[in-house]
């Protein structure tokens, strides 16, 4: 029996064909339904590039980037405090994370926005004099942007603190010893050895959170900040084309999130050096 003469018959996956056909059929039905829906698709491009919509887009991106950037800086500080040998620092960081992670973002935004109800002025006095570094009415300082920035950023910093802490914990203690052994100071050790390696663990969840942040800026519409949702509402208040303006806003969200995905890919590649 010459084995090279025997033909091999691969197993047929009939089930896969059935499931595939089922999915395509359902998608086709959905497409038919959407084509039949009372949506003025021809108006969407106009709303997509509407001046107000573009303003909302810019505000959304600025708010998300500023809040995330602040959250990352604060998160690193909080993570270091949580790992500190000082029990007061550890206790403070734990309490901060408990508080800002525990409250809904929308509630935090509203609290900041209404700060003027309890503090009329925000002041930073110069010690031992009557002079002030800062002395302004709260209403002037806490604009809708600042309230949204504080609400989103402080909440996010609590999450970032945990992400950064996990990243720092993932670095082999032998790396710190090796850095010490060549005479590196604690600061250099952190910047040159620990942080670059922790970044591999920190970046994926941070990218995830940034995408959440981009969408979370929509909550600032509640306090009248002109981001994408508020822009869509403002356009539709005149022409009542609510669905059409929301679809235009939805397209922008998908585009911005896709760009963020690409950025994350390149960051991961840069910090994956020597590992992948």
């Amino acid at each position: 029996m010459a084995s090279e003469d025997l033909q091999v018959v691969p197993i047929r996956h009939w089930g896969r064909w059935v499931v595939g056909a089922l999915i395509l059929g359902l998608l086709a039905l959905l497409g038919i339904a959407l084509a039949d829906a009372q949506i003025l698709y021809e108006d969407v491009p106009g709303f997509f590039t509407h001046e107000i919509m573009l303003g909302g887009l810019v505000n959304t991106v600025i708010l998300a980037v500023c809040a995330q950037a602040g959250a990352i800086v604060l998160g690193v500080v909080l993570a270091l405090l949580r790992r500190s040998p000082n029990p007061v620092a550890r206790w403070f960081a734990w309490g901060y994370i408990w508080l800002f992670r525990g409250l809904p973002v929308l509630l935090q935004i509203l609290l900041w926005f209404n700060l003027a109800l309890v503090f009329k002025f925000i002041s930073i006095p110069v010690p031992f004099t009557d002079a002030f570094v800062l002395h302004e009415p709260t209403n002037v300082i806490i604009t809708a942007f600042v309230a949204a920035l504080l609400g989103l950023g402080l909440n996010e910093s609590a999450y970032m603190a945990e992400i950064v802490r996990a990243g720092l914990n993932s670095v082999d203690p032998g790396q710190i010893e090796a850095a010490k052994a060549i005479g590196m100071t604690p600061g250099k050790t952190f910047r040159r050895v620990v942080l670059p390696q922790a970044m591999r663990v920190i970046i994926p969840p941070t990218g995830n959170n940034f995408i959440n942040m981009l969408k979370g800026t929509s909550m600032a519409s509640v306090i009248g900040f002109l981001e994408l949702i508020h822009a869509a509402n403002r356009i539709s208040s005149g022409n009542l084309e609510i669905m059409e303006t929301l679809i235009a806003a939805a397209l922008w969200y998908l585009i911005v999130v896709s760009v963020a995905n690409v950025g994350q890919y390149y960051l991961e590649r840069a910090y994956g050096k020597g590992v992948r």
């Binding site: 082999d172 790396q175 010893e177 090796a178 850095a179 052994a181 060549i182 910090y271 020597g274 590992v275």
Partner: peptide, 18 residues
């Protein structure tokens, strides 16, 4: 520590650098 070199059992090279 600049004057004292050390070689570890598990090498501890920096993996992200050549």
């Amino acid at each position: 520590r600049r004057d004292i070199g050390m070689v570890f059992q598990r090498f501890n090279l920096f993996p992200h650098r050549t």
